[in-house]
């Protein structure tokens, strides 16, 4: 569970890796954020998906950027993580046709009081400008009202999922 959460969003950099006995079951640890290859190469992988979790900070950057992992901000850390999770689930649920490959790749940045949501949406199924603008207005306003801070969407558009593909396995 924790592994999935870590894989999707709030990745915390591993600072001290002390040796310990792994008490969770063996398969829990090794399957997160790893994708099985298919027979007909239909599994599309983005760069983010293709790089393994141990490459975070090496070959791929974080999806969330906040300062609440520093020692002075321990109080706000759970709040921030929860806010991130709310935003991710909301985006994934609100743009079901437009989201790219499961909708995990949403970048959340915080600049002062404002929360910026970046990422890519695709319009291969149907491009309806009015619908999209309505949804943008709704999501920005709704998330602002929920989180009590301005939320701005900086999502960019891509024609098909193939434009963000790294390889197919």
């Amino acid at each position: 569970m924790l592994g999935q959460v870590l894989a999707r969003g709030g990745r915390l950099p591993c600072v001290d890796c002390a040796r310990a006995i792994a008490t969770s079951s063996a398969d829990m640890v090794n399957r997160a954020a790893k994708y099985r290859s298919t027979r007909d190469r239909s599994q599309l992988l983005t760069y983010d998906m293709a790089m393994r979790p141990h490459h975070i900070g090496v070959k791929k950057a974080w999806l969330t950027w906040h300062s609440q992992n520093l020692e002075e901000f321990r109080q706000q850390q759970p709040v921030t993580l929860t806010q991130d999770e709310i935003v991710r689930r909301f985006i994934r649920g609100f743009f079901p046709q437009h989201v790219v490959v499961h909708g995990n790749e949403v970048v959340i940045k915080r600049r002062g009081n404002v929360l910026f949501v970046s990422g890519f949406l695709q319009y291969s199924k149907r491009l309806d400008h009015r619908r999209i603008y309505w949804m943008f207005g709704f999501v920005e306003e709704f998330l602002s009202l929920v989180l009590k801070q301005p939320v701005k969407l900086e999502l960019a558009f891509v024609e098909t999922e193939d434009d963000v593909a790294y390889n197919y396995i």
């Binding site: 603008y133 207005g137 709704f142």
Partner: peptide, 11 residues
């Protein structure tokens, strides 16, 4: 107008 109506709905 679409964007504004979305905002109104949320409000």
């Amino acid at each position: 107008m679409a964007k504004e109506l979305g905002k109104r709905a949320a409000r």
